[in-house]
Design a protein around this nucleic acid. Sequence first.
DNA 1: GCAAATTTGTTCGTATGTATT
DNA 2: CAATACATACGAACAAATTTG
Lengths: 267, 267
Amino acid sequence: MGNPMYRQIAEELREQIESGILKPGQQLRTEIELRERYGASRNTVRDAIKWLTTLGLVETRPGQGTFVVKKIDPFITTLSADPTTGLGGGEGAIYLSQVSDQDREAFYSEPQVEIQKAPFEVSSRLRVPEGTQVISRHQRRYIDDTPWSLQTSFYPRGFVAQGAERLIEAGDITEGTMTYLAATLGLQQTSYQDWIKVRAPDPTEANFFNLPQDGRVGVFEIFRTAFDQTGRPMRLTVSVFPTDRNQFIVNAGEVPDLKEGGASKKT
Amino acid sequence: MGNPMYRQIAEELREQIESGILKPGQQLRTEIELRERYGASRNTVRDAIKWLTTLGLVETRPGQGTFVVKKIDPFITTLSADPTTGLGGGEGAIYLSQVSDQDREAFYSEPQVEIQKAPFEVSSRLRVPEGTQVISRHQRRYIDDTPWSLQTSFYPRGFVAQGAERLIEAGDITEGTMTYLAATLGLQQTSYQDWIKVRAPDPTEANFFNLPQDGRVGVFEIFRTAFDQTGRPMRLTVSVFPTDRNQFIVNAGEVPDLKEGGASKKT
DNA sequence: GCAAATTTGTTCGTATGTATT
DNA sequence: CAATACATACGAACAAATTTG
């Protein structure tokens, strides 16, 4: 084989990991031991480990060693509308019930409210001129103490003057902002669109989610544009979820109750 | 700052890339030039470049140099059902029309048909015992000569004996398999569920999509389970899309015609 | 609480191999 | 074939983080 040595070492370790000889969470031999084992220099062994690291198979911890990564039991979020409530997944009250379906507990921070100028990605989706002032409400969300998502909702600035004053107050709107906007402005959410991308996390996100700094774990970025009864955008919600611990479901039509239909635990 | 030198060099280059001083496709200075520019050793410069590589900002080509990566103009696929046809995105005939909406041309390979034993991920979703034989129909799909997705559909083995013989023939079923199954077996697709994950590509996928071997560009893996009028799974389609060139849309309710609603070119 | 031992992280230097122009 | 540019590999030294005694 014409493969470089560091790849051969990596390959051998990869097989041990995938065959289960090395179990998740288990420590690999130290660089010095591997150096002797393979008759390579320490730098070459380090190249092999670095390769496995970008493959996401192992992680190194300074002063401790190299460990096989544990996969996180994923969180499942349903994006399509619940036919009965008309609400989408991850939205207001509904997300708690989804989470508790999975026997997990969710928490979210108090919203952090700001008035800011809309960048292009926001203005184009809310259909306001770029640079227009918008209200942003930002939250950090956790499940079982694991950082789960960062979510920011944007509303047209004019909503406040029209009577929805609590939008710019920092407190939680317990009945849900959609209910509140219906009560104050008569706006009904009749439809929405989710736009799903995957990109590398920015440093803030990597820090919040405890992702490796080198960006090899991506994040879902979901833009949810909600439309009122006149067909105008009334809210844009941008949510960010790490791809290593989140999966999404979209139902179309009356999907039969699955419970045991999806992939449950493997092990 | 207490940052290591290779990170400082990487940071300086990153800023030049993101500010546009270094444009997509442009060549960076060579390692030797950077070594002199920053007063570091060649290995340290290489560490900086390696860092930018795993961030996905640059790519190196042996014998040529290091280049700022060009972003691919993304393909957009709608996952939610079209209220009129009842068909979902990326499915049968509809995907061509979606693609041509974006002024692009799509091609797909002849299906490659096999009978195989269902692995867990397939059997659990089709609700057949693990190891049961199933029919798999596999296709490679392209847009404008760019590899776009790999798609495999699984059907219960029994469908053939019940009369749907063309399922095991290698040729294309031009009218669409769903129409064919309706005609032969009386099965109607009344609903479906999409389950969306992101994972690292396997070597076959990395090769087909021309992704870097080190797995830092992930792939969407979408499991579409289609249900018939009795609520039983009739087909499982597993599609794989690289995250660097694909985005997805999910509509709920009657979403107004957008055309200019989404994010168009930035630049 | 501190010091020693262990382990990974950073940086240098050097030599040679491989791919492209 | 030669020149250029990145890839692999070795050796060495010191720094930083963590655990252990």
